[in-house]
Design a protein around this nucleic acid. Structure first.
Length: 433
RNA sequence: UCCCCGGUAGCUCAAUGGUAGAGCGUUCGGCUGUUAACCGAAAUGUUGGAAGUUCGAAUCUUCCCCGGGGAGCCA
């Protein structure tokens, strides 16, 4: 018997086929039953009549949600069935029946956030969550494809680091070997600056960790970041790369995961517009927009969540804000030669209030200036000696950025919270399951 | 660290200081085209914890615990 996946069921219309999966729901109607099966690729309705298949009917009767089953039957087009196809069940093998005493906890109805997060290992079985995880996978595939196509080499950064990239208050400290202290990485940036000097154009993609005490829909303590870095690149080069990357990811998801996007009921019209060029405005122009909307932000203030939304609502695609005051940015950012009080940095703000998905900058390549900045930011010189070496031995202008994967996928999926777009979210005060 | 909201049946929620309830899920029964099916019946409670006010507290007060949203910080 041909084993098929539910997403391909339409191709087997009129044929007998076998599906290996789980019982998603069961509607009983006297001598007729409508089981719904899922197999990880989709859901399909089955039909089973007592008169035609008494054995299968008996096996299905009273079967509990999420029981594992192997079912065989004829696939047929049926307008009354969700999805347009259904299976006339002729044979069913129950691998495990879920106990009535401990029924599957997640019902086909609304649940609270706390309950769902405590059952995240089961929650991911629901069609919506499974679709989101498929879109995440597509976003990663598309992002890596794009970077590879641009000649960027994947160079992995370490998870254990001896010091902070930016400040020390939000680091996870771990005991390394022989009572040495180490920290979980907040960013691979410093390391890919080194690999960029070795290989030219590089990127890293992996988890990063921040012990920020943030409890918002935009924060995770463990999140994935894609960070490109290129030797001889300047700020404008990175903005070009960033808009190319983001549009490639969005367009790939629309093209290759249309079924999943549709299941999420995402308004794709807004996503279809996400193509270069993206608008670029300076920090000072952003302040102007805010003041126009009666927001009191002034030069030198950081742009917070509400402010990001006001600015991004002016545009129909992601907007890049560049040249922030150096005083509110990280120590390693290159000053604008024409305005030394500004840093050659940029953020990309996603539309619809999803906020910052990219932060990047040109890096300081001058040794003396970098040392001066380390002192100004009260950072110790010693752990950064290797980093200073990059400015001792053939230093060149270079630039890069970091793309927050979960924020990007949350925006593409239109989810309310980024915890839904990672299989097992890690948040402040929540590490189970 | 700070501000706001919440915690009642397995789940989602009601209950104006006066007998703790409904829907879903579970169990039993009915139904040959259901769409989170429907109809009938049953079982299910330390109202997050402690103390206080009161004749009487799920409800009011204080403290603690847990969760959610946000600020700061950031992707």
């Amino acid at each position: 018997m041909t084993i098929i996946s539910i997403e391909d069921a339409g191709k087997y219309e009129g044929q007998e086929a076998t599906i290996r999966g789980w019982l998603y729901n069961l509607r009983e109607s006297g001598k007729l039953m409508f089981p719904i099966f899922r197999d990880g690729t989709g859901i399909i309705q089955g039909v089973c009549a007592l008169k035609e298949n008494p054995e299968a009917f008996e096996a299905l009767k009273g079967l509990t949600q999420e029981s594992s089953v192997i079912v065989t039957g004829k696939i047929r087009a049926e307008q009354r069935a969700p999805g347009g196809f259904e299976m006339g069940v002729s044979k069913i093998q129950v691998l495990q029946k879920v106990s009535e005493a401990q029924p599957y906890p997640i019902q086909l109805k609304e649940h609270g956030v706390d309950f769902l997060l405590d059952h995240r290992h089961l929650w991911i079985r629901t069609p919506r969550q499974a679709s989101i995880l498929r879109i995440r996978a597509e976003a990663i595939r598309a992002a890596r494809n794009f970077m590879d196509s641009q000649g960027y080499i994947l160079t992995d950064a370490p998870m254990f680091t001896p010091a902070a990239c930016e400040g020390t208050s939000t680091l996870f400290e771990v005991n390394y070997i022989d009572d040495q202290k180490a920290y979980l990485t907040q960013s691979g940036q410093l390391y890919i600056e080194a690999t960029a000097m070795a290989l030219g154009k590089v990127y890293t993609f992996g988890p990063t960790f921040r012990a920020e005490k943030s409890k918002t829909r935009r924060h995770l303590t463990e999140f994935w970041m894609l960070e490109p870095e290129a030797a001889y690149a300047e700020l404008g080069d990175m903005m070009n790369l960033a808009e190319g990357l983001v549009s490639a990811v969005v367009q790939s998801v629309l093209k290759n995961k249309s079924r999943e996007v549709e299941l999420l009921k995402r308004d794709t019209k807004k996503l279809e517009k996400v193509k270069p060029p993206f608008p670029r405005i300076s920090y000072e122009e952003a302040i102007g927009i805010l003041n126009k909307h009666n927001n009191p932000t002034k030069f030198g203030d950081d742009i917070g969540g509400d402010e990001e939304t006001i600015v991004s609502n002016e545009f129909d695609r992601p907007v890049m804000v560049h040249r922030y005051p150096a005083s509110i940015k990280a120590f390693y950012m290159q000053p604008d030669p024409e305005r030394p009080d500004l840093a050659l940095a940029f953020d990309m703000l996603a539309p619809e209030g999803y906020g910052e998905i990219i932060g990047g900058s040109q890096r300081i390549h001058d040794y003396d200036l970098l040392v001066k900045r380390l002192h100004e930011y009260k950072l110790p010189e010693e752990p950064f000696q290797w980093y200073l070496d990059l400015r001792r031995y053939g230093s060149v202008p270079h630039a890069g950025f970091g793309l927050g994967l979960e924020r990007t996928v949350a925006w593409i999926c239109g989810t309310e919270h980024i915890r839904e777009v990672i299989p097992f979210p890690r948040m402040i005060y929540r590490v189970y399951p």
